[in-house]
């Protein structure tokens, strides 16, 4: 069963996403910040990352940049309410496979996760 990482500083959003993925037959682990996720990533692998953009400590963009440098294989789906085009372009340029606006429908999110995982090379994903 693929495991999805969720990074969002908002607890209500985190819990909701976690429940949705669970009922949809996906395993998931939630993180309240990007550094917390990066710490976990050192010791285990995830099949996909769903991340917010506006977060204290480290933003979603900074996280994607870091992953781009160190874990280019991990598929990333951005789920954010940021409307700024430049940020969106930057995220996609850094390898994010989808940019979804909040709020999102379950189908859109699940499709985006599935597509992201299909497009990545399962051989190199850790």
């Amino acid at each position: 069963m693929p495991t999805i990482a969720i990074v969002d500083d908002d607890e209500a959003v985190r819990e909701a996403l976690g429940d949705l993925l669970m009922v949809s037959g996906l395993a998931c682990q939630c993180f309240e910040s990007a550094p917390a996720f990066l710490t976990a990533l050192r010791s285990r692998r995830f099949d996909c990352l769903v991340t917010d953009i506006r977060m204290p400590e480290m933003t979603g963009i900074e996280l994607i940049e870091k992953l781009h440098e160190e874990h280019a294989q991990l598929p990333v789906v951005v789920l954010s309410s940021v409307l700024d085009d430049a940020t969106r372009t930057k995220a996609l340029a850094l390898g994010a496979s989808a940019w979804l606006g909040k709020p999102v429908t379950d189908e859109h999110l699940l499709d985006a996760i599935a597509t992201a995982m299909e497009n990545s090379d399962p051989g190199t994903a850790r």
């Binding site: 209500a12 959003v13 909701a16 009922v23 709020p103 999102v104």
Partner: peptide
């Protein structure tokens, strides 16, 4: 505003 809306929508669909 979108944070609680996102939570609402996802929870409802779940």
């Amino acid at each position: 505003v979108n944070q609680p809306l996102a939570a609402i929508m996802t929870n409802a669909e779940t």
